[in-house]
Design a protein around this nucleic acid. Sequence first.
DNA 1: TCATATT
Length: 352
Amino acid sequence: MESQVAGGPAGPALPNGPLLGTNGASDDSKTNLIVNYLPQNMTQDEFKSLFGSIGDIESCKLVRDKITGQSLGYGFVNYSDPNDADKAINTLNGLKLQTKTIKVSYARPSSASIRDANLYVSGLPKTMSQKEMEQLFSQYGRIITSRILVDQVTGVSRGVGFIRFDKRIEAEEAIKGLNGQKPLGAAEPITVKFANNPSQKTGQALLTHLYQSSARRYAGPLHHQTQRFRLDNLLNMAYGVKRFSPIAIDGMSGLAGVGLSGGAAGAGWCIFVYNLSPEADESVLWQLFGPFGAVTNVKVIRDFTTNKCKGFGFVTMTNYDEAAMAIASLNGYRLGERVLQVSFKTSKQHKA
DNA sequence: TCATATT
């Protein structure tokens, strides 16, 4: 993560110049851990507290979905002392937390070459074991993880599995070599392709969350036209249907001086979004508001010196009804540990 | 017939 400078009194004298290893990279391979199979509902604070009980933490991060803020079930911990990292592996690896058994291991150095190295395999013989599947794939490289999905009730293989290689090149070679091939003694060929990236799922996950939260917020019989409008549109979005609603939502009375920004270039409805994380960027706003309709502009307000988001931003949408829908759906939406506040921007001139 | 491992 961050460069660490060796300052140990017992270490060899360092030459002048950058206090880095000969390869120019900082060496956190002895202090940086990856933690997998965390319970879905574990928070950053709980994560830090659990691993902080071992020793001083330099930094730690529970990895979450960029858009929905949901935990992705893994995280990183960087200890100040390599001995604490070792201790964390020995004492916390295999710990059972709720339904999960967490895995604690040293993190490989992060690089582009190890990303997108995860394969989805289907059409496997039901009799093939995880070990046999690994043997089949191991000729193409170092396998980091493997799994065969099983029927929840019977425990029998579903013929579907995952293989994560150390390097993406190895995964590519495995696809070339094994996709469409019959394993020894198998009746049918297997399909080998890259597994879905979690980020591809987030659009759908967002819509699901929005639909659920919307359904909760407007719980009750759907006889009111406004409610029907919202739910119809959320369902339409989920199915990718674009259509105009014949039902007009609440009138636009009482909106004088609110939201509507004039000017040829900036015409549209300006929306104020509050409680963004310091890490938020424009893409988050595009992805949050895009599903609701035409978005012409997004802006994250950043601190000039740190370049971190100051906690708020603005989105401009062309159509009133789509902006109103976005506000109704996203106001109060939980993004990670934060609850968004979303409203039409109020004009500053009129404030006391 | 896609669960979750690279900040």
